[in-house]
Design a protein around this nucleic acid. Structure first.
Length: 613
DNA sequence: TTTAGGG
DNA sequence: CCCTAAA
């Protein structure tokens, strides 16, 4: 079926980090490959998809067919609006107070369209405040006003009650989607779902309900449909309900299905279209959720192009699909590009027990993920099971940056193959990883750069969008020069996939390539070039380690491979005309020396001996 | 781990 | 800069 195809397509885009080559070829630099934070983003996007659904309007080709659900839902027995508002407030209170990413705020503030910029840093309190105080109020308390506003925008919003179950609508969606073109009938019923964000996102009440199988299903993707190599991502499993749908239930999931898959193609294309992202641009990858139900939200540069499912610009978080909405039944006019989970700070004494650490982390994470999960802790790849040990006893101290502490979110009721990740979580077999990952999210403690008091270990939890990791890693480079190196960033790596929600944190060395991040680009300065030239003149072109040691021993970010590469480019640069050269101009004198040295050492095999030039 | 080269 | 075969 078409939907499945599209879904899998999207998943593949995520699963298989194909982005790199394609994007890299565009410019050959500043692109990302197998970024760990992509996975993170994915994961949280999955969450976002639920959250986003709340705001999503699933507009048909006819913008008039925008429907909101207002009345209490008989299924959940809750007034959606009230519930949403409660959740929103709770979320805001719990999260934003701690410097949550502003993007989240926007996610909860549908009326702030157009006000969201990329590059919003975390903890942009003023930004948050503004919207929380101002427009945030509009979300529900002033629903009518919002409706008015929308109406002014030429859209008619119908408010309709949710009279039946939350799930039932799902199976109707496909129909409605197909009808969407005709603007016959908006997928009204679907909206019940969509608009019940709290139910899907933070509300465990609903999810926990034993009789709420349907709802659970609706927040899951059909894992059976992994008919391609890539395992489809999944929502974090908030409940140990069966994520597997029976055939008869299949249609029910179409809706969520749709919403999720909708997102992926965009994401995928985004990367492919990321034709000029410089390193610094990656900081902008931290995006929030946006309500782009209003077409005014559409970013002018990334929509309306022929790339129906393609266009997502780096800086935009939502892509309007006006241009082709009419030609595709199920196209929605918005997509969540990325979703940032607010950072959480955990300040815990070293003498605290592992158990308390777990609980603390759990508390924080629970705010977002719901509390049907518990935290597992990995240290050096091994699970720490003894809750009574103290952190220090376990080897978790602020002074040791290398202990590589990892946190996992695991479903309470789902036994996780102990052998699998006990031995080495980084080398899970595909199958075992699938088992694990289905309901697990991993949080990894990575070296970071946060200040911490001497007596306490401050662990920063943050979901990382691309930019974040970038920041972290770049700070790492300079950590030796500041006093921040003793801290760590706890990076949430919710690699949530349908089939493979990897528990695997990111030991780069462990060989898991999915968690590698391209280093930031650092052009060589003339001084560096000079040092390099001088060293090569002395040592030759085949002893890069020595060159490194000799001239760049203190430049942690310059590896001998870097130096070798630089020499390569220097030779090339020296051979081309000055007009063709780019970047900071290298003095001709240096380039001459490069050629000379290169020529010399080409003749004289630099056999481990210092040869005078 | 390093080197050497292609991408 | 990345990725890797080879050494």
């Amino acid at each position: 079926m078409v939907l499945q195809k599209r879904l899998n397509y999207g998943f593949n885009g995520y699963q298989v980090p194909v982005i790199p080559r394609a994007s890299r070829s565009a410019r050959g630099r500043g692109t990302i490959k197998k970024k760990p934070d992509n996975n993170q983003i994915q994961a949280f996007e999955m969450l976002a998809s639920v959250a986003g659904n709340f705001l999503q309007k699933n507009e048909s080709s006819d913008p008039k067919n925008v429907v909101f659900v207002e009345d209490p839902c008989s299924f959940c027995g809750t007034n959606i609006k009230d519930k949403y508002e409660d959740e929103r407030r709770s979320f805001m209170r719990d999260s934003f107070d701690h410097g949550a990413c502003s993007e989240i705020a926007s996610a909860f503030v549908p009326s702030m369209q157009g006000k969201h910029d990329n590059h919003r840093g975390m903890g942009d309190s003023s930004f948050l405040d503004n919207h929380l105080e101002g427009q945030g109020q509009n979300v529900l308390e002033r629903e009518d006003e919002r409706i008015k506003r929308r109406s002014v925008n030429g859209k008619t919003i119908h408010i309709k009650g949710c009279s039946d179950g939350l799930i039932e609508p799902c199976h109707k969606v496909s129909k409605h989607c197909s009808l969407a073109n005709n603007a016959e009938k908006p997928s009204l019923e679907c909206r019940k779902h969509l608009d019940s964000f709290p139910n899907g996102f933070t509300s465990r009440k609903l999810v926990n309900r034993d009789d709420d199988e349907n709802l659970v299903r609706c927040t899951q993707l059909n894992s059976k449909n992994n008919n391609t190599s890539g395992a489809p991502p999944d929502m974090p499993k908030l409940k140990d309900a069966s994520p597997i749908m029976s055939d008869e239930n299949n249609s029910r999931d179409i809706f969520e299905f749709e919403n999720l898959q909708r997102m992926y193609p965009f994401k995928k294309r985004k990367f492919f279209n990321q034709n000029s992202s410089s390193t610094s641009d990656r900081g902008s990858q931290c995006q929030g959720m946006f309500d782009s139900s209003d077409t005014t939200r559409v970013n002018g540069t990334n929509h309306g192009t022929s790339a129906t499912m393609l266009s997502i610009e780096e800086s935009s978080s939502i892509v309007g699909q006006q241009a082709h909405s009419g030609s595709r039944a199920c196209n929605v006019k918005l997509s969540i590009k990325s979703f940032k989970v607010p950072e959480l700070f955990i300040d815990i004494p070293e003498t605290a027990t592992i158990g308390s650490l777990k609980r603390t982390v759990m508390e924080a994470v629970t705010t977002i993920l719901g509390d049907e999960l518990h935290v597992g802790i990995l240290l050096q790849g091994k699970k720490v099971r003894d809750d009574s040990k103290t952190l220090i006893q376990t080897g978790i101290s602020q002074d040791d940056k290398r202990h590589r502490l990892g946190f996992m979110l695991e479903p309470r009721h789902t036994p996780i193959s102990p052998t699998s990740y006990n031995d080495d979580p980084c080398f899970l077999t595909t199958s075992s990883r699938k088992k694990l990952s289905r309901q697990s999210t991993s949080l990894t403690l990575q070296q970071g750069t946060y200040n911490v008091s001497k007596e306490r270990s401050m662990i920063k939890i943050e979901s990382c969008a691309k930019g974040d990791l970038n920041i972290v890693s770049s700070l790492e480079d300079t950590s030796t020069n500041n006093n921040m190196s003793k801290c760590r960033a706890l990076v949430a790596v919710p690699a949530i996939n349908m089939e493979a929600l990897a528990v695997v944190p990111f030991w780069r060395k462990s060989g898991n390539p999915d968690f590698a991040q391209r280093r930031i680009r650092r052009p060589f300065s003339v001084l560096e070039v000079e040092a390099l030239v001088q060293a090569v003149e002395k040592l030759g072109t085949g002893r890069w380690r020595d060159v490194k040691q000799r001239a760049f021993d203190h430049a942690k970010h310059r590896t001998y491979v870097d130096l070798k590469d630089k020499w390569k480019t220097l030779v090339h640069t020296a051979r081309i005309s000055p007009q063709q050269r780019r970047g900071e101009p290298v003095p001709q004198e240096l380039l001459d020396r490069v050629l000379a040295a290169h020529a010399y050492w080409s003749q004289h095999q630099c056999k481990h001996q210092l040869k005078p030039l």
